[in-house]
């Protein structure tokens, strides 16, 4: 059974996306890469569940693959 939430779960989708882009504004490619890496680590720690993380990694690596 899939544990990763793959149906829409962010009520304010546009706000989130804008905030994500805003966080990167004015950064060089290198700084942006570093921010993304930090963000992934922060979110991964928040999730904590290895099964969920593995599922997320799988989908991120291959978006077309069936989830679960």
């Amino acid at each position: 059974m899939a544990k990763l939430e793959t149906s829409p779960n962010i009520p304010a989708a546009d706000e989130f996306f804008a905030a994500l882009l805003a966080a990167h504004e004015g950064l060089s490619k290198e700084e942006s890469d570093a921010l993304n890496a930090r963000l992934i680590l922060i979110l991964a720690n928040h999730l904590g569940d290895m099964e969920v993380l593995e599922e997320a990694l799988k989908i991120a690596r291959n978006p077309g693959a069936a989830s679960g």
């Binding site: 890469d33 570093a34 890496a37 930090r38 992934i40 680590l41 922060i42 720690n45």
Partner: peptide, 15 residues
């Protein structure tokens, strides 16, 4: 990049 991200975060955050 990930290694350095860990180090940067670790200075301020236990996790």
């Amino acid at each position: 990049i990930f290694r350095d991200a860990v180090l940067d975060l670790a200075a301020h955050h236990d996790f």
